[in-house]
Design a protein around this nucleic acid. Structure first.
Length: 874
RNA sequence: GGGCGCAUAGCUCAGCUGGGAGAGCGCUUGCCUUACAAGCAAGAUGUCGGCGGUUCGAGCCCGUCUGCGCCCACCA
């Protein structure tokens, strides 16, 4: 194998092959090893409906970074992948697809439909899993799960039966959210509210006795056909004598009473509310309190039913128009106001939700919610950032029973069998052959399937073998961190927490890392309807997965949304290319050489400075990664690799590497190789492909994936050398700056005359100064008197440097430059003096900070003095 | 109605427990210097939204106001 790298990095040329190698080598599969500490992340399973989008790319990048870091730290790290059947979302898509073929799901029948659905799953479920690999996700595919596979389904049935037996699952007639388009019930969490411009219709309901009328206001006139009362506040003087009177319901032959209920606010609208228990949640409650009839007028498909008098079979919308028109022409309309209000919509198809009373299955939440609130309160489970726990509490503390039945076919069928003879419901783990109560064979399984989130709620343990107590379950449960967006805290996180506690006796994870969502360049949510989505696979094709991953996390604050556009990719591409070339430099110089081990020779000052820096970065990076501050960690790596390793360290190695001293050269190269190797390891969790590709040539093991992540090492702490080389950098920068200001041609080498008490600093590092600042020759002097030529001066706290530049020196310009410097210094000195003369600062600030200020002041005074002398001489 | 977030350089955003304001892009100037022009070097740019408070010291903590965004609730 050649050890050469191409001039520019081409991710396309190596990413897929490396992934294949990782996967087939089994690197993603951790051992159940009692001697190692487990670390487990459950992958939020993507829906089988789709394509990888930027939201996936973000969340899986974060998870992969965390898991790769832990793996390199020696944990037995499991990232368990899988897909979600996404009951309603998938069924909607399949129905659409069938519609294009001119088929309805009813014509196929349940069996036929499910056959098509499984085919669909094979096609599209496979796609997203392939795309996950493109991203570099180091998940254990041997444990890949699917919410409807045998294992997960077994867990679903087990949990359902357990909850039923404990009385925590029940069937009942309740007000639920009905989607007239998907034709199914929905949970509260599945309803989204949209602000809509509408009207408030004021309608006159005449008293039966002919003594005038009462005016009610409504946003939904079509529901009036289902009115069974008009409610007023019991203390409302306006209506107090009307309570109990009968009203004639317009457009119908029905008579309804005026009733009193505290729910009504006298001050709002007319102070009288029409009551439609069948089609409004609040009215339903009032209906229960007053034992009112439930008159349903809207059918499940959103059309008016047989109770709708002249409006039977009209759609909700048509009925509204016609009813309003009829009321108007009959003089029942008092007035129509413009009105803005929120309308509940289906989170999948955005059809307006119809609240209806229906027989559904529910999970009783109160008892389950309590311990789930507790584990977050007592810190057993913590949200990162912490503020998201408020969202969680808000939901959990006001939780209502969870409607879990769906009138769909794609999903887990409810394990309940109804007896046609005695009506008893048999809930069972196995398919029963007879009614458990009356032994009748005349039983049939409930037609409904479960809410898709019922199975996702069990994900942290169903995927590890529950209800069987497998060794994996024992080892990896509870898992460590759950990573997800804030948009599914209710849907998923909350439900996993109470499900874990209820079924496993222990919360499913100890940390919940919440990230934001990826938005477009204008800050809008990426959506299909807007067409503003960016395809991550396209970006991977163009720039490589590493660039995408890195651009999604560099400099991003925890929990913050990301405004993303393709132009964020290029700077990262350049960064990785920089790393690529630094590696190329290393490789071309170590080619064929036998390098000494680091412990066998004396490190140079540059070596020590670099190793110290590396050590510090490693230390900080571990801290940042352990607290999941990936934005800070990635930015730090960018600065370190580009700003320190490439800009300074590699330049420092050149005089030696291109020099004559063979021994020094080998030593330097040994350090260089080590520094590059460590840097690759540090970067590997973020950019797995490029680091592995380089490791294949520069590393000394089979894969970088299983190397040890660099950690703080006391032996590489070199404080003195750090300060020395930082000062050297300052000198070099000052010379470069001066050269630029004086328009010294880059090719022109200048000689330096140095006046300093720290001659060692200069003498030891003269070659670096010469090479990096474009100088030739350094001579020590005791004063500028020893120079004949015109010169410019540079002053630091340690040295005074004279640079003879002959005619390039413009005395007026030099005055200007010095005055500017002197001005700045005076300000600094002023600041330092006032701080140090502040008694409060001296006595209350930490001692080391006071010291720092003292030293700064002394240095500045020293510099100023030198500059003033120089100015006087000019 | 309740809660949360954001407001920092022309643009996009960092800034961890309070201790002299940062990055990337863009801009100016000069360079193809044997890792890299996807590059190198040097530079310019900020009443850290307003006001008040705590503190020796505030971009950071507290209060308040303004503007933008989000979530929950759903008074018909």
């Amino acid at each position: 194998m050649s050890n050469e790298l191409a001039k520019n990095f081409e991710p396309k040329s190596f990413e897929e092959a490396l992934y294949k190698k990782w996967e087939t080598s089994g690197y993603f599969t951790p051992d159940v090893d009692p001697n190692k500490e487990p670390f487990c992340i459950m992958m939020p399973p993507p829906n089988i409906t789709g394509q990888l989008h930027m939201g996936h790319a973000l969340t899986y990048t974060i998870q992969d970074i965390i898991i790769r870091h832990k793996r390199m730290l020696g944990y037995s790290a499991l990232w368990l992948p899988g897909t979600d059947h996404a009951s309603i979302a998938t069924e909607v898509k399949i129905v659409d697809m069938l519609a294009k073929e001119g088929i309805t799901k009813e014509s196929l029948g349940r069996e036929g439909f499910l056959k098509r659905a499984y085919e669909w799953k094979e096609t599209y479920g496979g796609q997203i899993v392939r795309q996950l690999r493109r991203l570099g996700s180091s998940c254990d595919w041997t444990k890949e799960a699917f919410t409807m596979d045998k294992q997960c389904s077994k867990a679903v049935v087990e949990v359902f039966v357990r909850l039923y037996e404990k009385g925590l699952i029940y069937q009942g007639d309740r007000m639920i959210n009905w989607c007239p388009s998907c034709l199914t019930a929905l949970s509260d969490a599945e309803v989204e509210y949209e602000n809509q411009q509408s009207h408030l219709w004021h309608i006159r309901y005449p008293y039966v006795d002919g003594s005038g009328y009462i005016v009610v206001a409504t946003t939904r006139p079509e529901t009036m056909l289902g009115d069974v009362a008009v409610a007023v506040n019991p203390n409302d003087k306006k209506y107090i004598d009307k309570i109990g009177k009968l009203l004639k319901l317009p457009l119908t032959d029905r008579e309804i009473p005026v009733i009193a209920d505290d729910y009504v606010e006298s001050s709002f609208g007319t102070g009288a509310v029409k009551i439609t228990p069948a089609h409004d949640p609040n009215d339903f409650e009032i209906g229960l309190r007053h034992d009112l009839e439930i008159v349903k007028v809207i059918a499940d498909d959103g059309t008016m039913n047989e109770n709708a008098f002249a409006y039977v079979n009209l759609s909700r919308e048509e009925a509204r128009d016609k009813i309003v028109k009829d009321l108007e022409s009959l003089g029942y309309i008092e007035k129509i106001e413009d009105y803005e209000h929120n309308v509940g919509c289906c989170y999948r198809c955005h059809t307006t939700i119809e609240p209806i009373v229906s027989k559904q299955w529910f999970v009783s939440m109160e008892q389950l919610a309590q311990p789930a609130i507790e584990v977050v309160k007592d810190g057993s489970v913590s949200f990162i950032p912490e503020r998201f726990s408020k969202i969680y509490f808000n939901w959990m503390e006001n939780i209502k029973d969870w409607c879990i039945s769906r009138q769909l076919w794609w999903g887990h069928r409810i394990p309940a069998w109804h007896c046609k003879d005695c009506g008893h419901i048999t809930v069972s783990r196995q398919v029963p052959d007879k009614c458990e109560k009356c032994n009748s064979l005349n039983i049939y399984q409930d037609e409904d399937v479960l809410d898709t989130w019922f199975s996702s709620a069990l994900w942290p343990f169903s995927t590890l073998g529950f209800p069987n107590q497998t060794k994996e379950l024992e080892y990896f449960y509870p898992t460590n961190v759950l990573v997800t967006g804030y948009d599914i805290i209710f849907f998923w996180v909350a439900r996993m927490i109470f499900s874990g506690i209820e079924n496993m006796g222990k919360f499913p994870f100890s940390e919940v890392l919440i990230h934001g969502i990826v938005r477009d360049a204008l800050g809008r949510k990426m959506s299909k309807s807007l067409g503003n989505g960016i395809d991550p696979i396209m970006l991977i094709e163009k720039y490589g997965a590493d660039v995408l991953r890195f651009s999604l996390c560099m400099g991003v604050a925890p929990g913050a949304d990301i405004r993303f556009s393709e132009d964020k990719m290029e700077p990262i591409r350049n960064f990785l290319n920089k790393l690529w070339n630094a590696s190329r430099y290393t490789l071309m110089n170590i080619e064929g050489l036998d390098l000494p081990k680091l412990e066998t020779f004396e490190l140079s000052n540059i070596d020590k400075w670099m190793l110290n820096k590396l050590n510090e970065v490693s230390n900080e990076l571990n801290k940042n990664l352990n607290s999941y501050d990936l934005g800070i960690a990635s930015a730090k790596l960018y600065d370190f690799i580009w700003g320190e390793v490439c800009d300074w360290y590699i330049e420092f190695t050149k005089p030696t590497i291109y020099g004559e001293n063979e021994e020094l050269k080998l030593n330097t190269l040994a350090v260089l190789k080590f520094v590059m190797q460590q840097s690759l390891k540090l970067l590997h969790p973020f950019a797995p492909f490029i680091t592995e590709e380089i490791w294949q040539k520069l590393g000394d093991s089979e894969t970088i994936m299983n190397t040890n992540f660099p950690v703080f090492n006391k032996a590489f702490s070199f404080k003195k050398e750090h300060e020395q080389i930082e000062h050297l950098k300052e000198i070099i920068k000052a010379i470069r700056n001066l050269r630029a200001q004086m328009d010294v041609e880059p090719s022109r080498k200048v000689k330096l005359y140095v006046n300093t008490k720290s001659k060692d600093l200069i003498a030891l590092n003269s070659t670096y100064i010469e090479r990096l600042a474009g100088c030739s020759g350094i001579e020590f002097v005791d004063s500028s008197d020893e120079l004949n030529d015109k010169f410019a001066t540079i002053v630091t706290s340690v040295v005074q440097i004279y640079i003879p530049l002959g005619d390039l020196i413009d005395v007026a310009k030099e005055f200007e430059r010095l005055d500017l410097e002197i001005g700045k210094l005076n300000k600094e000195i002023q600041r330092g003096k006032s701080m140090l003369s502040n008694q409060g600062f001296i006595s209350k600030a930490p001692q080391h900070l006071v010291e720092v200020e003292r030293k700064k002041l002394a240095d500045n005074k020293d510099k100023l003095e030198k500059l003033l002398i120089r100015r006087a001489e000019l």
